[in-house]
């Protein structure tokens, strides 16, 4: 397990160098990651007429600055944000140092005096259990019994197969007309004649 943590630590140290803020002299190497979808056009020799082409592409300014951002914005804000987030990280490291490395006894005492709170925290606020009962199981059951077995297999696929069965059923009914009896066949011809002539005479 430790090896994983080591890898993660190395990664987290290095990842920051991908986008060093401009204010301290860096540049963002992955900001042009999706440039072809956002960057301004201009050089394309498109097939459309110039006017409509330009119209279709004149959207670059509409994209919020932070997604394509040329420089990352106001230097003061940027410095402030850097200081703030670094401060929180350092404070967290300090508290952890105090409780887990220097004064383990304090940790145990705090845990004992707030037993209820400790249990809740130890079980991560029971969030997993609450999620499981309130969301995971209902969604799973509804998906399995409702969506899959009733809606999908029953209603939607039933309609598809029903269309096939409908043709089958009509086929079975209509084939009975073919009785094999000569008289029925002659009658069919006769009915046809009567209908056609009737249409002509009485329309």
């Amino acid at each position: 397990m430790a090896i994983v943590l080591v890898l993660l630590a190395i990664g987290s140290v290095l990842a920051g160098y991908v986008g060093v803020p401009t204010v301290i002299g860096g540049s963002n190497r992955i900001e042009h990651f999706l440039a072809p979808s956002f960057a301004a056009p201009g050089m394309d020799a498109g097939g459309e007429s110039g006017a409509s082409h330009a119209e279709g592409l004149s959207e670059a300014p509409t994209v919020p600055a932070e997604s394509t951002g040329e420089g990352g914005g106001d230097p003061n804000t940027e410095l402030g944000l850097m200081a703030f987030s670094s401060g929180i990280a350092v404070a967290g490291i300090g508290i952890a140092l105090f409780f887990f490395l220097r004064r383990r006894d304090v940790t145990d005492r705090v845990a004992a005096s707030f037993a209820g709170v400790h249990r809740v925290l130890l079980n991560k606020y029971y969030v997993d259990e609450i999620y499981d009962a309130a969301i995971v199981q209902p969604v799973k059951n509804a998906s399995e019994r409702g969506l899959w077995k009733v809606v999908d297999a029953g209603v939607i696929d039933g309609a598809v197969n029903g269309a096939g069965k409908l043709v089958d059923g009509w086929s079975a009914i209509l084939r009975r007309l073919q009785t094999g009896s000569m008289r029925a066949y002659a009658l069919s011809v006769f009915v046809g004649v009567v209908l056609i002539l009737g249409y002509y005479v009485w329309r």
Binding site: H32, F33, L34, P36, S37, E48, H53, G56
Partner: peptide, 19 residues
Amino acid sequence: APSYFLNPMKPAVNRIVSR
């Protein structure tokens, strides 16, 4: 490296979008 793929796509996509 999506731009290898997105770049050649772009003019044709633009053509349809502007239409």
